[in-house]
Design a protein around this nucleic acid. Structure first.
Lengths: 126, 126
DNA sequence: CGGTATCCCACCTGATACTG
DNA sequence: CAGTATCAGGTGGGATACCG
């Protein structure tokens, strides 16, 4: 199986992957999967995210049709973000990835210890 | 479903995700899925990758136990990289993600055009 | 509240040169 | 061949301040 025999720069998979695989996108979608959320509510659940980074991430997700932005014209403006059906469909492969991390974290940690601890002897064991 | 009620910075999924979700890792694993490859052979198949970036990526994958590095003591040294069973297991969720990109690229492109073209009216359509 | 604008700095990048 | 070393330069992040 090789969908792209070579990974050209304009390979659709590459282009799209660059869009969805950043540090925060997956988590934002996971948060919004619980239901629509306000900006600061999302921010509170993503430990370590800055306002700037979150804003950029939300814009990108919105641009790609994965989330929807709705302005609530209250006294101090409110903005609500909601996951779209397209965004929800991306949750499926994302959850598969999450499951992999949960299942294989111990193995990765063991490999890392072997690599770091050894003088490079890790290559022998594999 | 919320495996992490909140995304703490030390959430195992977050930590591991940061390790595997960079620009090149997924493609390197896909290339090595065809069989062991030499450094420059991999480089040739990843259009746009620099030697430095590829070296860093291969080191990280090796450290995390996803690929194995083998030095072939020939006249000009040769180095062969091979995917490990652990790396191969990661291919499963990666392929699911690839399938999603292939299937949903048109929808994303349409959303993007709506967002870019419109004055922000894209929020209405969703 | 939900941003945008600004500054500043760390980092990543590309290019080049050099080594075992 | 497969790197490491180095340096210039652009990109992005963090902090702060300010606007609707």
């Amino acid at each position: 199986m090789s969908p792209c025999p070579q990974f050209a720069a304009d390979c659709p998979s590459r282009v799209l992957f660059d869009q969805i695989a950043d540090k925060w996108s997956m988590m934002v979608l996971a948060v919004l999967d619980d239901g629509p959320q306000r900006f600061n509510a999302i921010k509170r659940r993503l430990e370590g995210v800055t306002q700037k980074a979150l804003t950029q991430c939300l814009r990108k997700l919105e641009r790609n049709g994965l989330i929807a932005r709705r302005v609530i014209p209250t006294s101090p403006v409110g903005v609500e973000y909601a996951i779209t059906p397209l965004g929800r469909s991306l949750q499926v492969p994302f959850r598969a990835l999450y499951a992999w991390t949960a299942e294989n974290l111990p193995k990765v940690e063991r490999a890392r210890n072997a690599f770091d601890g050894g003088t490079g002897a890790g290559t022998l064991a594999l």
